[in-house]
Design a binder for these strands. Sequence first.
DNA 1: TAGTGGTCTAGACCACCAC
DNA 2: TGGTGGTCTAGACCACTAG
Lengths: 239, 239
Amino acid sequence: MSLGTNFQPLYKQVYDALIKRLSEGYWKPGAALPSEFALADELGVSQGTVRKALNQLVTENILLRRQGKGTYVSEHTHESSMFRFFRYREVGGEDLIPSTKVISVEQREANEREARKLGLGDLTTVMQVTRIRSINDKPAIFESVLQPWAVFPGIQNERELPNSLYTLYQEKYNISVVEVRDDLKAVSLPAEIAEHLNLEVNAPALMTERASINIDGRVVEWSQAYCSTDNFVYSVSLK
Amino acid sequence: MSLGTNFQPLYKQVYDALIKRLSEGYWKPGAALPSEFALADELGVSQGTVRKALNQLVTENILLRRQGKGTYVSEHTHESSMFRFFRYREVGGEDLIPSTKVISVEQREANEREARKLGLGDLTTVMQVTRIRSINDKPAIFESVLQPWAVFPGIQNERELPNSLYTLYQEKYNISVVEVRDDLKAVSLPAEIAEHLNLEVNAPALMTERASINIDGRVVEWSQAYCSTDNFVYSVSLK
DNA sequence: TAGTGGTCTAGACCACCAC
DNA sequence: TGGTGGTCTAGACCACTAG
């Protein structure tokens, strides 16, 4: 197959070729891929080898397969994929989709730490979006998101931001977040944030720093979130 | 194969049969399993079907395969598997194995909430082990672990507790933790705990509640941990 | 050299879906 | 009915390990 001379198992070469196409937007979110046999013909390998690569992408939530129908590119609009990365839960409550209110959007230069976290080189201009997420109409999370111009060209012209930014990223900027890395700390709430959340200054709060990773491995977004855990917990399962 | 009349794919039946044997201690941690062909013969399926089940168990960190050698039952003594579940990291530091000092061991009855979290029925007697974990010789984490008698018969007679309790569970009680579920909150440090950690009372701290899941799906341990995040973060990756 | 797991292929058959 | 993915098999060949 014409996949270069790297010494890699065929299925890995197929996997890499598919990742490359997906990150270039060759197949759009929600679109169907060719069948296993069609891909096998095109890439010059057997159907079983293609299958192994496809199934790997399914376990990574990048593709979706349905018996009798076909193989599709996963979309970030589905509720299931929202809850994959949204880990805050109301204590003893249902899984509810948070509503979101934008507090401010501003353009600025990333500081050194931010630029490092975002893996930025020279172009350090970012958009900073500050939002309040409410669960059951209770303000719960104060969130501040950094979007580099280098990753989202023209994002300063966006007029309306959807509840799930990842949907916007996928639809308009060909960015598919496949992994997030969270660092959690406990902090005393700063006055400004306490006010937004109707909480007391210096109350203990959970602070999450998140790097979001694109399908091509780049960090494409970095965010900070504050959450009082009187009513919410950050809930995660490790296997 | 003689695996009952459940309508399940063969590889799933093989997987279940292997899980059953592993949870019964048929193969001990570190031991080698029979080869693919031997298992296939014994179970009356083809080698490829056995392989699919084995590879699933490898992705779940339950088995370990080495080309040219064989298939082995994973052990919890390895450093790698320690860090799988230990998520606290020193800010900007290396991954260091924490040292542990036992503060107290006592036998008591679980309260209603604890019994519910542990999925206990009538036998609600538990051992409560309280420990301080230090990283780089700095007291970092105050941890309180509940071990039900129902799960660990005779554990009240243990004289020495290893740094990693999971090692003890696996070697003496045939318990292999394959998953943990953490709920994180931010709290004000209670006086007793602040003292143990050389911190100020009411300083904000991260509090982790953890349920540990055995290979057979049961919750086998429930623990609470307090950690000041001046120097440490809870770090996790979601995919 | 023999035995193990790792890769790759080819083909049969089934279950599901759409027309 | 034809096309898709899902399962299962059989066999060839390679790479690594140990004696």
